[in-house]
Design a binder for these strands. Structure first.
Lengths: 204, 204
DNA sequence: AGGGTTATAGGCCAGTTGTATTATGTCAAC
DNA sequence: GTTGACATAATACAACTGGCCTATAACCCT
Protein backbone atom coordinates (compact mmCIF):
# COMPACT_ATOMS: atom_id res chain seq x y z
CA UNK A 1 0.00 0.00 0.00
CA UNK A 2 2.23 2.80 -1.18
CA UNK A 3 1.50 6.18 0.31
CA UNK A 4 3.22 8.95 -1.55
CA UNK A 5 1.65 11.65 0.59
CA UNK A 6 1.41 12.00 4.34
CA UNK A 7 -2.34 12.07 4.77
CA UNK A 8 -2.18 13.60 8.19
CA UNK A 9 0.06 16.41 7.05
CA UNK A 10 -2.10 17.14 4.06
CA UNK A 11 -5.18 17.28 6.25
CA UNK A 12 -3.42 19.66 8.61
CA UNK A 13 -2.42 22.00 5.82
CA UNK A 14 -6.03 22.05 4.66
CA UNK A 15 -7.14 22.71 8.22
CA UNK A 16 -4.76 25.67 8.45
CA UNK A 17 -6.19 27.03 5.24
CA UNK A 18 -9.61 26.66 6.79
CA UNK A 19 -8.50 28.70 9.81
CA UNK A 20 -7.29 31.42 7.48
CA UNK A 21 -10.62 31.47 5.69
CA UNK A 22 -12.49 31.77 8.98
CA UNK A 23 -10.32 34.66 10.08
CA UNK A 24 -10.08 36.49 6.79
CA UNK A 25 -13.32 35.79 5.03
CA UNK A 26 -15.66 34.75 7.83
CA UNK A 27 -17.71 31.70 8.77
CA UNK A 28 -20.29 32.47 6.14
CA UNK A 29 -17.73 31.99 3.36
CA UNK A 30 -16.46 28.78 4.89
CA UNK A 31 -17.00 26.58 1.85
CA UNK A 32 -15.11 23.58 0.56
CA UNK A 33 -14.17 25.46 -2.57
CA UNK A 34 -12.97 28.52 -0.67
CA UNK A 35 -10.81 26.40 1.63
CA UNK A 36 -9.40 24.55 -1.37
CA UNK A 37 -8.57 27.83 -3.08
CA UNK A 38 -6.88 29.14 0.07
CA UNK A 39 -4.90 25.91 0.41
CA UNK A 40 -3.98 26.01 -3.26
CA UNK A 41 -5.77 22.81 -4.21
CA UNK A 42 -8.67 21.93 -6.41
CA UNK A 43 -11.84 21.34 -4.48
CA UNK A 44 -11.90 17.78 -5.72
CA UNK A 45 -8.55 17.35 -4.03
CA UNK A 46 -9.91 18.45 -0.69
CA UNK A 47 -12.68 15.92 -1.07
CA UNK A 48 -10.09 13.25 -1.45
CA UNK A 49 -8.87 13.98 2.07
CA UNK A 50 -12.18 14.75 3.72
CA UNK A 51 -15.22 12.66 2.98
CA UNK A 52 -17.48 15.60 3.70
CA UNK A 53 -17.48 19.25 4.60
CA UNK A 54 -18.57 18.27 8.09
CA UNK A 55 -15.58 16.03 8.55
CA UNK A 56 -13.27 18.80 7.38
CA UNK A 57 -14.77 21.16 9.93
CA UNK A 58 -14.47 18.65 12.75
CA UNK A 59 -10.87 17.96 11.96
CA UNK A 60 -9.98 21.66 11.75
CA UNK A 61 -11.64 22.28 15.10
CA UNK A 62 -9.97 19.40 16.88
CA UNK A 63 -6.69 20.35 15.29
CA UNK A 64 -7.03 23.85 16.73
CA UNK A 65 -7.51 22.54 20.28
CA UNK A 66 -4.62 20.19 19.73
CA UNK A 67 -2.32 22.95 18.54
CA UNK A 68 -3.19 25.14 21.51
CA UNK A 69 -2.40 22.27 23.85
CA UNK A 70 0.89 21.74 22.07
CA UNK A 71 1.84 25.39 22.37
CA UNK A 72 1.16 25.20 26.09
CA UNK A 73 3.20 22.02 26.28
CA UNK A 74 6.17 23.63 24.58
CA UNK A 75 5.87 26.64 26.85
CA UNK A 76 5.85 24.38 29.89
CA UNK A 77 9.10 22.77 28.82
CA UNK A 78 10.71 26.19 28.71
CA UNK A 79 9.58 26.79 32.27
CA UNK A 80 11.84 24.01 33.50
CA UNK A 81 11.21 21.14 35.85
CA UNK A 82 9.47 22.72 38.78
CA UNK A 83 7.73 25.79 37.43
CA UNK A 84 5.92 28.21 39.70
CA UNK A 85 2.17 27.50 39.38
CA UNK A 86 1.70 31.18 38.70
CA UNK A 87 3.82 30.92 35.57
CA UNK A 88 1.99 27.81 34.44
CA UNK A 89 -1.40 29.48 34.73
CA UNK A 90 -0.09 32.60 33.05
CA UNK A 91 1.20 30.55 30.15
CA UNK A 92 -2.10 28.73 29.70
CA UNK A 93 -4.13 31.92 29.76
CA UNK A 94 -1.85 33.70 27.33
CA UNK A 95 -1.81 30.83 24.86
CA UNK A 96 -5.59 30.80 24.84
CA UNK A 97 -5.82 34.50 24.05
CA UNK A 98 -5.44 35.91 20.52
CA UNK A 99 -2.22 37.76 21.31
CA UNK A 100 -0.13 36.65 18.35
CA UNK A 101 -0.58 35.00 14.97
CA UNK A 102 -0.69 31.31 15.95
CA UNK A 103 -2.84 31.85 19.00
CA UNK A 104 -5.08 34.18 17.04
CA UNK A 105 -5.76 31.54 14.40
CA UNK A 106 -6.70 28.84 16.89
CA UNK A 107 -8.63 31.27 19.04
CA UNK A 108 -10.78 32.29 16.11
CA UNK A 109 -11.40 28.71 15.16
CA UNK A 110 -12.42 28.02 18.76
CA UNK A 111 -14.88 30.86 18.67
CA UNK A 112 -16.46 29.41 15.54
CA UNK A 113 -16.44 26.02 17.23
CA UNK A 114 -18.46 27.30 20.17
CA UNK A 115 -20.93 28.99 17.88
CA UNK A 116 -21.41 25.77 15.95
CA UNK A 117 -21.78 23.83 19.20
CA UNK A 118 -24.93 25.81 19.97
CA UNK A 119 -26.96 23.80 17.49
CA UNK A 120 -24.91 20.69 16.85
CA UNK A 121 -25.06 18.08 19.58
CA UNK A 122 -21.98 16.20 18.48
CA UNK A 123 -19.86 19.33 18.33
CA UNK A 124 -21.30 20.44 21.63
CA UNK A 125 -20.28 17.18 23.27
CA UNK A 126 -16.78 17.30 21.87
CA UNK A 127 -16.24 20.96 22.70
CA UNK A 128 -17.63 20.41 26.17
CA UNK A 129 -15.38 17.45 26.88
CA UNK A 130 -12.35 19.27 25.60
CA UNK A 131 -13.05 22.37 27.64
CA UNK A 132 -14.02 20.42 30.75
CA UNK A 133 -10.78 18.53 30.57
CA UNK A 134 -8.83 21.76 30.38
CA UNK A 135 -10.82 23.13 33.25
CA UNK A 136 -10.14 20.16 35.49
CA UNK A 137 -6.45 20.50 34.70
CA UNK A 138 -6.50 24.07 35.91
CA UNK A 139 -8.49 23.12 38.98
CA UNK A 140 -5.97 20.47 39.88
CA UNK A 141 -3.24 23.06 39.49
CA UNK A 142 -5.08 25.50 41.73
CA UNK A 143 -5.70 22.85 44.38
CA UNK A 144 -2.04 21.91 44.40
CA UNK A 145 -1.04 25.56 44.61
CA UNK A 146 -3.28 26.02 47.63
CA UNK A 147 -1.91 22.92 49.24
CA UNK A 148 1.62 24.11 48.58
CA UNK A 149 0.90 27.48 50.10
CA UNK A 150 1.21 29.52 46.91
CA UNK A 151 -2.42 30.48 47.12
CA UNK A 152 -4.15 31.44 50.35
CA UNK A 153 -5.99 28.55 52.06
CA UNK A 154 -9.13 30.68 52.31
CA UNK A 155 -9.61 30.51 48.54
CA UNK A 156 -12.16 28.11 47.10
CA UNK A 157 -10.44 26.08 44.37
CA UNK A 158 -13.56 25.71 42.24
CA UNK A 159 -14.39 29.40 42.23
CA UNK A 160 -10.78 30.41 41.67
CA UNK A 161 -10.50 28.02 38.73
CA UNK A 162 -13.64 29.41 37.19
CA UNK A 163 -12.49 32.99 37.64
CA UNK A 164 -9.15 32.22 36.06
CA UNK A 165 -10.77 30.66 33.03
CA UNK A 166 -13.22 33.51 32.73
CA UNK A 167 -10.26 35.73 31.94
CA UNK A 168 -10.30 34.22 28.46
CA UNK A 169 -13.10 36.75 28.05
CA UNK A 170 -10.40 39.20 27.02
CA UNK A 171 -10.58 37.52 23.64
CA UNK A 172 -13.51 39.62 22.46
CA UNK A 173 -11.92 42.86 23.58
CA UNK A 174 -8.63 42.01 21.91
CA UNK A 175 -10.25 41.04 18.64
CA UNK A 176 -12.21 44.27 18.53
CA UNK A 177 -9.22 46.41 19.51
CA UNK A 178 -10.97 47.73 22.58
CA UNK A 179 -8.24 46.66 24.97
CA UNK A 180 -4.57 46.59 24.00
CA UNK A 181 -2.49 43.45 24.42
CA UNK A 182 -0.34 45.45 26.84
CA UNK A 183 -3.34 46.16 29.05
CA UNK A 184 -4.49 42.55 28.91
CA UNK A 185 -1.10 41.33 30.07
CA UNK A 186 -1.12 43.94 32.84
CA UNK A 187 -4.57 42.81 33.96
CA UNK A 188 -3.69 39.13 33.89
CA UNK A 189 -0.50 39.76 35.85
CA UNK A 190 -2.33 41.94 38.31
CA UNK A 191 -4.92 39.24 38.81
CA UNK A 192 -2.34 36.51 39.28
CA UNK A 193 -0.39 38.73 41.68
CA UNK A 194 -3.44 39.00 43.86
CA UNK A 195 -4.19 35.31 43.64
CA UNK A 196 -0.71 34.19 44.57
CA UNK A 197 -0.16 35.75 47.93
CA UNK A 198 1.85 33.00 49.54
CA UNK A 199 5.45 32.21 48.66
CA UNK A 200 5.14 28.45 48.58
CA UNK A 201 6.10 25.59 50.83
CA UNK A 202 3.40 26.88 53.12
CA UNK A 203 3.92 25.96 56.73
CA UNK A 204 6.04 22.91 55.92
CA UNK B 1 -48.03 58.41 3.86
CA UNK B 2 -50.25 55.74 5.32
CA UNK B 3 -48.50 53.08 7.33
CA UNK B 4 -50.65 50.10 8.13
CA UNK B 5 -47.80 48.26 9.76
CA UNK B 6 -45.27 49.45 12.30
CA UNK B 7 -42.11 49.03 10.27
CA UNK B 8 -39.88 49.13 13.28
CA UNK B 9 -41.86 46.43 15.04
CA UNK B 10 -41.89 44.23 11.98
CA UNK B 11 -38.16 44.59 11.58
CA UNK B 12 -37.68 43.70 15.23
CA UNK B 13 -39.78 40.56 14.90
CA UNK B 14 -37.68 39.53 11.90
CA UNK B 15 -34.53 40.27 13.90
CA UNK B 16 -35.75 38.04 16.72
CA UNK B 17 -36.41 35.28 14.22
CA UNK B 18 -32.86 35.79 13.01
CA UNK B 19 -31.56 35.37 16.56
CA UNK B 20 -33.49 32.13 16.83
CA UNK B 21 -31.99 30.86 13.60
CA UNK B 22 -28.48 31.69 14.79
CA UNK B 23 -29.05 29.87 18.06
CA UNK B 24 -30.97 26.91 16.75
CA UNK B 25 -29.66 26.30 13.27
CA UNK B 26 -26.29 28.06 13.27
CA UNK B 27 -24.61 30.88 11.41
CA UNK B 28 -24.14 28.73 8.34
CA UNK B 29 -27.90 28.44 7.87
CA UNK B 30 -28.40 32.14 8.36
CA UNK B 31 -30.15 32.82 5.07
CA UNK B 32 -32.87 35.25 4.16
CA UNK B 33 -35.21 32.39 3.38
CA UNK B 34 -34.51 30.59 6.65
CA UNK B 35 -35.12 33.73 8.67
CA UNK B 36 -38.32 34.34 6.74
CA UNK B 37 -39.50 30.79 7.43
CA UNK B 38 -38.68 31.17 11.13
CA UNK B 39 -40.53 34.46 11.26
CA UNK B 40 -43.46 32.98 9.34
CA UNK B 41 -43.13 35.22 6.32
CA UNK B 42 -42.32 34.72 2.69
CA UNK B 43 -38.79 35.64 1.70
CA UNK B 44 -40.13 38.36 -0.53
CA UNK B 45 -41.77 39.84 2.52
CA UNK B 46 -38.51 40.03 4.42
CA UNK B 47 -36.96 41.79 1.47
CA UNK B 48 -39.69 44.35 1.71
CA UNK B 49 -38.38 45.32 5.14
CA UNK B 50 -34.69 44.88 4.50
CA UNK B 51 -33.07 46.04 1.31
CA UNK B 52 -30.42 43.37 1.60
CA UNK B 53 -29.29 40.45 3.68
CA UNK B 54 -26.47 42.62 4.97
CA UNK B 55 -28.87 45.25 6.22
CA UNK B 56 -30.94 42.59 7.95
CA UNK B 57 -27.84 41.32 9.71
CA UNK B 58 -26.75 44.78 10.78
CA UNK B 59 -30.14 45.57 12.18
CA UNK B 60 -30.36 42.30 14.09
CA UNK B 61 -26.94 42.90 15.58
CA UNK B 62 -27.61 46.45 16.63
CA UNK B 63 -30.96 45.42 17.96
CA UNK B 64 -29.26 42.83 20.15
CA UNK B 65 -26.92 45.41 21.71
CA UNK B 66 -29.86 47.71 22.14
CA UNK B 67 -31.93 45.09 23.90
CA UNK B 68 -29.10 44.24 26.26
CA UNK B 69 -28.73 47.91 27.13
CA UNK B 70 -32.46 48.13 27.73
CA UNK B 71 -32.43 45.13 30.04
CA UNK B 72 -29.65 46.76 32.02
CA UNK B 73 -31.62 49.99 32.07
CA UNK B 74 -34.72 48.29 33.44
CA UNK B 75 -32.61 46.49 36.02
CA UNK B 76 -31.11 49.80 37.09
CA UNK B 77 -34.53 51.27 37.71
CA UNK B 78 -35.31 48.42 40.04
CA UNK B 79 -32.16 49.17 41.98
CA UNK B 80 -33.58 52.53 43.01
CA UNK B 81 -32.11 55.99 43.03
CA UNK B 82 -28.72 55.54 44.59
CA UNK B 83 -27.72 51.96 43.90
CA UNK B 84 -24.57 50.47 45.31
CA UNK B 85 -21.95 50.40 42.51
CA UNK B 86 -21.43 46.75 43.29
CA UNK B 87 -25.03 46.00 42.38
CA UNK B 88 -24.78 48.04 39.21
CA UNK B 89 -21.72 46.15 38.02
CA UNK B 90 -23.27 42.85 38.99
CA UNK B 91 -26.36 43.68 36.98
CA UNK B 92 -24.35 44.64 33.91
CA UNK B 93 -22.26 41.49 34.02
CA UNK B 94 -25.23 39.23 34.51
CA UNK B 95 -27.23 40.77 31.71
CA UNK B 96 -24.32 40.21 29.34
CA UNK B 97 -24.05 36.52 30.22
CA UNK B 98 -26.30 33.85 28.67
CA UNK B 99 -28.03 33.02 31.94
CA UNK B 100 -31.63 33.08 30.75
CA UNK B 101 -33.59 33.06 27.51
CA UNK B 102 -33.47 36.77 26.59
CA UNK B 103 -29.86 37.24 27.54
CA UNK B 104 -28.95 33.99 25.81
CA UNK B 105 -30.45 35.15 22.53
CA UNK B 106 -28.62 38.47 22.51
CA UNK B 107 -25.42 36.91 23.77
CA UNK B 108 -25.39 34.44 20.90
CA UNK B 109 -26.05 37.18 18.42
CA UNK B 110 -23.17 39.14 19.91
CA UNK B 111 -20.86 36.17 19.53
CA UNK B 112 -21.76 35.93 15.85
CA UNK B 113 -21.27 39.69 15.61
CA UNK B 114 -17.71 39.47 16.87
CA UNK B 115 -16.92 36.62 14.52
CA UNK B 116 -18.21 38.64 11.60
CA UNK B 117 -16.25 41.66 12.76
CA UNK B 118 -13.02 39.74 12.18
CA UNK B 119 -13.27 40.22 8.43
CA UNK B 120 -15.77 43.02 7.96
CA UNK B 121 -14.39 46.49 8.62
CA UNK B 122 -17.74 48.17 8.98
CA UNK B 123 -18.99 45.61 11.48
CA UNK B 124 -15.68 45.78 13.28
CA UNK B 125 -15.97 49.54 13.67
CA UNK B 126 -19.54 49.39 14.92
CA UNK B 127 -18.86 46.52 17.32
CA UNK B 128 -15.76 48.25 18.56
CA UNK B 129 -17.51 51.53 19.19
CA UNK B 130 -20.38 49.84 20.95
CA UNK B 131 -18.09 47.80 23.17
CA UNK B 132 -15.73 50.69 23.86
CA UNK B 133 -18.65 52.81 24.93
CA UNK B 134 -19.78 50.13 27.35
CA UNK B 135 -16.27 49.81 28.61
CA UNK B 136 -15.88 53.51 29.30
CA UNK B 137 -19.18 53.43 31.17
CA UNK B 138 -17.85 50.72 33.44
CA UNK B 139 -14.59 52.57 33.89
CA UNK B 140 -16.41 55.70 34.94
CA UNK B 141 -18.36 53.62 37.43
CA UNK B 142 -15.19 52.10 38.82
CA UNK B 143 -13.51 55.49 39.13
CA UNK B 144 -16.47 56.89 40.97
CA UNK B 145 -16.57 53.86 43.26
CA UNK B 146 -12.91 54.36 44.11
CA UNK B 147 -13.48 58.03 44.74
CA UNK B 148 -16.44 57.24 46.96
CA UNK B 149 -14.42 54.72 48.92
CA UNK B 150 -16.31 51.62 47.82
CA UNK B 151 -13.21 50.28 46.15
CA UNK B 152 -9.74 50.51 47.67
CA UNK B 153 -7.72 53.53 46.47
CA UNK B 154 -4.81 51.25 45.64
CA UNK B 155 -6.74 49.76 42.72
CA UNK B 156 -6.02 50.92 39.19
CA UNK B 157 -9.33 51.86 37.56
CA UNK B 158 -8.25 50.82 34.07
CA UNK B 159 -7.06 47.38 35.09
CA UNK B 160 -10.05 46.79 37.34
CA UNK B 161 -12.42 47.76 34.54
CA UNK B 162 -10.72 45.38 32.15
CA UNK B 163 -10.80 42.54 34.65
CA UNK B 164 -14.47 43.08 35.31
CA UNK B 165 -15.30 42.96 31.63
CA UNK B 166 -13.15 39.92 31.11
CA UNK B 167 -15.59 38.04 33.32
CA UNK B 168 -17.92 37.94 30.33
CA UNK B 169 -15.60 35.08 29.39
CA UNK B 170 -17.96 32.87 31.37
CA UNK B 171 -20.15 32.93 28.28
CA UNK B 172 -18.28 30.11 26.57
CA UNK B 173 -18.33 27.93 29.65
CA UNK B 174 -22.03 28.50 30.19
CA UNK B 175 -22.94 27.75 26.59
CA UNK B 176 -20.99 24.51 26.65
CA UNK B 177 -22.38 23.47 30.04
CA UNK B 178 -18.93 23.28 31.58
CA UNK B 179 -19.76 25.66 34.41
CA UNK B 180 -23.21 25.87 35.98
CA UNK B 181 -25.05 29.18 36.23
CA UNK B 182 -24.94 28.74 40.01
CA UNK B 183 -21.15 28.55 39.95
CA UNK B 184 -20.89 31.56 37.65
CA UNK B 185 -22.98 33.64 40.00
CA UNK B 186 -20.89 32.46 42.92
CA UNK B 187 -17.70 33.41 41.09
CA UNK B 188 -18.98 36.82 40.07
CA UNK B 189 -20.16 37.54 43.59
CA UNK B 190 -16.91 36.34 45.05
CA UNK B 191 -15.00 38.58 42.66
CA UNK B 192 -17.13 41.63 43.45
CA UNK B 193 -16.85 40.92 47.17
CA UNK B 194 -13.10 41.13 46.88
CA UNK B 195 -13.23 44.23 44.72
CA UNK B 196 -15.53 46.16 47.02
CA UNK B 197 -13.67 46.25 50.27
CA UNK B 198 -14.67 49.68 51.47
CA UNK B 199 -18.14 50.59 52.73
CA UNK B 200 -18.48 53.87 50.88
CA UNK B 201 -18.31 57.53 51.78
CA UNK B 202 -14.63 56.93 52.25
CA UNK B 203 -12.98 59.39 54.60
CA UNK B 204 -15.64 62.03 54.09
C1' DA C 1 -66.18 55.69 -4.54
C1' DG C 2 -61.91 55.86 -6.56
C1' DG C 3 -56.80 56.51 -6.85
C1' DG C 4 -52.58 55.72 -4.87
C1' DT C 5 -49.74 53.51 -1.61
C1' DT C 6 -48.29 49.77 0.95
C1' DA C 7 -48.35 44.69 2.45
C1' DT C 8 -47.60 40.25 1.21
C1' DA C 9 -46.60 36.23 -1.68
C1' DG C 10 -44.53 34.07 -5.20
C1' DG C 11 -41.75 33.27 -9.30
C1' DC C 12 -37.45 33.98 -11.82
C1' DC C 13 -32.53 34.24 -12.47
C1' DA C 14 -27.62 33.77 -12.41
C1' DG C 15 -24.38 32.27 -9.30
C1' DT C 16 -22.73 29.13 -5.66
C1' DT C 17 -23.05 25.24 -2.80
C1' DG C 18 -21.77 20.10 -1.42
C1' DT C 19 -21.33 15.84 -3.33
C1' DA C 20 -20.72 12.22 -6.90
C1' DT C 21 -18.49 10.77 -10.80
C1' DT C 22 -15.13 10.50 -14.21
C1' DA C 23 -10.62 11.28 -16.33
C1' DT C 24 -5.73 11.68 -16.17
C1' DG C 25 -1.30 11.42 -13.96
C1' DT C 26 2.08 9.05 -10.79
C1' DC C 27 4.33 5.75 -8.40
C1' DA C 28 5.54 0.85 -6.49
C1' DA C 29 5.54 -4.06 -6.93
C1' DC C 30 5.55 -7.98 -9.59
C1' DG D 1 5.97 -3.23 -18.98
C1' DT D 2 1.83 -4.21 -17.07
C1' DT D 3 -1.19 -3.88 -13.16
C1' DG D 4 -3.29 -1.71 -9.32
C1' DA D 5 -3.60 1.65 -5.86
C1' DC D 6 -3.36 6.24 -5.09
C1' DA D 7 -3.10 11.61 -6.22
C1' DT D 8 -5.03 15.20 -8.48
C1' DA D 9 -8.08 17.65 -11.41
C1' DA D 10 -12.18 18.52 -13.82
C1' DT D 11 -16.87 18.12 -14.67
C1' DA D 12 -21.87 17.17 -13.70
C1' DC D 13 -25.79 17.99 -10.94
C1' DA D 14 -29.51 18.95 -7.87
C1' DA D 15 -30.31 22.01 -4.23
C1' DC D 16 -30.09 26.36 -2.55
C1' DT D 17 -28.59 31.23 -2.40
C1' DG D 18 -29.64 36.61 -2.62
C1' DG D 19 -31.62 39.98 -5.46
C1' DC D 20 -35.10 41.40 -8.59
C1' DC D 21 -39.53 41.77 -10.51
C1' DT D 22 -44.55 41.09 -10.74
C1' DA D 23 -49.26 40.07 -9.10
C1' DT D 24 -52.76 40.48 -5.89
C1' DA D 25 -54.89 42.12 -1.76
C1' DA D 26 -55.57 45.50 1.87
C1' DC D 27 -55.79 49.87 3.29
C1' DC D 28 -55.82 55.29 3.65
C1' DC D 29 -57.01 59.75 2.09
C1' DT D 30 -59.72 62.84 -0.52
Amino acid sequence: MPKQVDHRERRESIARALWRVVGQRGVMHLTVREVAREAGFSHGHVQHYFASREEMLSFAMDFASEQTAQRVGRGLEELGEHPHPRDVLRLMLIEMLPLYADARATSRMSAAYVLEALHDKKIHARARDSLAQGRSLVEQLVRQAIEDGYIGPDRDPVTETNLLLALTGFTTFLELDVIEPREVLAAVDQYLDRLFTGDGDGGA
